[in-house]
């Protein structure tokens, strides 16, 4: 390497470190790839609020919706790597690119940390003849494709996980979000649905919807007494997760500063209480392990996304 380039590189590295030392000097923008008022938005706002206290600069939420999160995450990955644009990344980062519905994938980000994981919960309306998960599985085996599933997102990775693992098929009715799939269940137009606990907790507590199983690894604190799929003998897990990330070339010192601030936020009693009150799950994964976690998740999603691709007719 010729000398001037080396000097330039060194200068850059030094200036990077200097630059990082004063970070953050101004407000930080947090891109949330889903709309204000949704689950991702709620998690983003509380964690940003708490982390901002530690960083000493405000964190401003910018909702950038579209393409099931792809629009916002793409913009986040392509923003200037100076630490002043952070992105809320979600599980869609690991799934959508596999079916050409997103331009970004895990390696287009430098992960900061994971802050939340919500399992899927299987729900039926209160007077349903389906009383247990066994009823659903046996119903689907007896008459494949006849049980009506109210799908709150397409492609529905929760249902597809259950279908591929157990070799079942259902009649998937598409709806525009949990706000429409839950009424479809309450009105008796569909047989069952799978959503995150926080999206249906009001109806569950009122006894309008009955949770049959939760698709988490172990017992889920937000839904005490509800068995996991594994406890019922079905090896199915399905969840969504949310975390924070910056563009790949962001200086390491800055990423570390962000990680420590967000870790403090997650550990704070305010965050724990906020999440528990809204039946949102807390899970922290540090930067060092987050990329591996995402790559493994993308791999786990591969067979499901293959089915989606076949559906797309490509």
């Amino acid at each position: 390497m010729c000398r001037p380039t080396l000097v330039a590189c060194l200068a850059l590295a030094v200036s990077g470190a200097l630059f990082a030392a004063g970070y953050p000097e101004k407000e930080i923008r947090l891109i949330v790839p889903f709309a204000a008022g949704g689950g991702t938005d709620a998690v983003a706002r509380i964690v940003a609020d708490l982390a901002a206290k530690d960083l000493g600069q405000p964190i401003v939420i910018m909702n950038k919706t579209g393409g099931a999160g792809a629009v916002g995450m793409t913009e986040g990955a392509r923003s200037r790597p100076d630490g002043y644009t952070v992105t809320m990344i979600t599980r869609e980062l690991c799934s959508l690119y596999q079916v050409d519905l997103s331009l970004v994938q895990p390696k287009d980000f430098l992960p900061v940390c994971l802050v939340n994981e919500d399992p899927a919960v299987v729900l039926v309306p209160k007077n349903s003849p389906l009383k247990s998960l066994k009823d659903i599985v046996e119903g689907a085996r007896a008459r494949p494709g006849s049980l009506k599933f109210a799908s709150s997102a397409q492609p529905n990775i929760y249902l597809l996980a259950m279908m591929t693992e157990l070799g079942l098929s259902f009649n998937q009715i598409p709806y525009g979000g949990a706000g429409e799939s839950i009424p479809a269940l309450l009105g008796g137009h569909c047989d069952f649905t799978m959503v995150n606990p926080g999206e249906a907790i009001a109806q569950i507590r009122a006894g309008e919807l009955i949770p049959l199983a939760v698709c988490s690894d172990g017992p889920y604190a937000g839904l005490p007494g509800v068995p996991t799929m594994r406890e019922l003998g079905y090896n199915v897990t399905a969840s969504t997760w949310r975390g924070l990330a910056v563009p790949p070339r962001t200086p390491r010192e800055i990423a570390e500063k962000l990680e420590s601030a967000f870790k403090k936020a997650v550990d704070s009693p305010e965050f724990q209480k906020f999440m528990a009150d809204r039946t949102l799950g807390v899970r922290f994964i540090p930067a060092a392990e987050y990329m591996d976690f995402m790559l493994r998740d993308a791999e786990a999603l591969a067979p499901i996304m293959k089915i989606v691709k076949a559906q797309q007719g490509k």
Binding site: A35, A36, G37, G38, D41, A42, R45, I46, G177, G179, G198, I201, A202, Q203, R205, A206, E208, D277, R278
Partner: peptide, 19 residues
Amino acid sequence: TAILLGALIIQGLQPGPLL
């Protein structure tokens, strides 16, 4: 009202049959 629902949830209320 979809946004209002989110607002209520962030406020710590659970709009629903029990509200």
